[in-house]
Simulated assay, not measured.
Amino acid sequence: MVDVSRTFTVRRPLDEVVAYLRDFANAVDWDPGTQKCERIGADPVALGTRWHNESKLFGISTELVYELTVDEPDHLKFTGTNKTASTFDDLTFGRGDGDSTIITYHAHVEFNGAAKLADPVAQLAFNRLADSVPKQMTTVLEKR
């Protein structure tokens, strides 16, 4: 199991931040590992919307299908699955000073079967990756 969390502030209003992050296809901009992320279907983004995600982390490529499983004004959760793992990208939001937003990014990965043996190494790798999310997400959001 991998579990990482980072809290940081961006200089953008909460409503704008949530609206942008609610479309997981935007992960190609803010998630350092995401190579490609496309919505499945043409319906507007809503609870149950799914995305096909292709990521590459430390030389290992993987594909997952993510689903928007929590869709609230101050909380978004995306649940990703494939045969090797289940992953949860959980984003909570609070109002900061002025037009700023406090974001808590929490990523949790549960490996299946023999992949569980990778837990200790994966935790170290995800710690490094999670360190880059606040900077990349802040840069993307503040340019909007």
Results as ranks from 00 to 15, higher is better:
Val2Gly: 00
Arg6Val: 10
Thr7Asp: 01
Thr9Val: 09
Arg11Ile: 05
Arg12Gly: 07
Arg12Met: 07
Arg12Asp: 02
Arg12Cys: 03
Leu14Ala: 08
Leu14Cys: 13
Glu16Tyr: 02
Val17Ser: 09
Val17His: 09
Tyr20Lys: 12
Tyr20Asn: 11
Leu21Trp: 05
Leu21Glu: 10
Leu21Met: 15
Phe24Ile: 13
Asn26Lys: 15
Ala27Ile: 13
Asp31His: 12
Gly33Thr: 02
Thr34Cys: 06
Lys36Thr: 06
Glu38Cys: 05
Glu38Ala: 10
Glu38Asn: 12
Glu38Met: 09
Arg39Thr: 09
Ile40Met: 13
Ala42Pro: 01
Ala42Asp: 15
Asp43Gln: 13
Pro44Ile: 06
Val45Ala: 10
Thr49Trp: 07
His52Trp: 00
Asn53Phe: 03
Asn53Thr: 04
Glu54Val: 03
Glu54Leu: 05
Ser55Ala: 13
Lys56His: 13
Gly59Ala: 05
Ser61Gly: 11
Thr62Trp: 07
Thr62Phe: 14
Glu63Pro: 00
Glu63Met: 02
Leu64Ala: 07
Val65Ile: 10
Leu68Gly: 15
Leu68Ala: 15
Thr69Leu: 06
Val70Gln: 13
Asp74Thr: 09
His75Ile: 05
Phe78Arg: 04
Phe78Asp: 12
Thr79Met: 05
Thr79His: 11
Gly80Ala: 09
Thr81Trp: 02
Asn82Ser: 11
Lys83Phe: 01
Lys83Val: 04
Thr84Asn: 06
Ala85Met: 14
Ser86Cys: 07
Thr87Gly: 12
Asp89Thr: 13
Asp89Gln: 15
Asp89Gly: 10
Asp90Pro: 09
Asp90Arg: 08
Leu91Thr: 12
Phe93Ser: 01
Arg95Phe: 01
Arg95Gly: 08
Asp99Tyr: 00
Asp99Val: 01
Ser100Ile: 00
Ser100Asp: 05
Ile102Val: 11
Thr104Lys: 01
Tyr105Ser: 14
Tyr105Phe: 15
Ala107Cys: 04
His108Glu: 01
Val109Cys: 06
Val109Met: 10
Glu110His: 02
Phe111Met: 10
Asn112Cys: 04
Asn112Arg: 12
Gly113Cys: 05
Gly113Ile: 05
Gly113Ser: 10
Ala114Phe: 12
Leu117Lys: 05
Pro120Lys: 00
Val121Phe: 11
Val121Tyr: 07
Ala122His: 09
Ala122Tyr: 07
Ala122Pro: 14
Gln123Lys: 09
Ala125Pro: 02
Ala125Ile: 03
Ala125Phe: 03
Phe126Asn: 12
Ser132Cys: 02
Ser132Ala: 03
Ser132Arg: 10
Val133Arg: 03
Val133Asn: 07
Val133Trp: 03
Pro134Ala: 11
Pro134Tyr: 09
Pro134Phe: 05
Gln136Arg: 11
Met137Asn: 13
Met137Lys: 13
Val140Gly: 05
Val140Ile: 14
Glu142Ser: 07
Glu142Thr: 07
Lys143Ala: 11
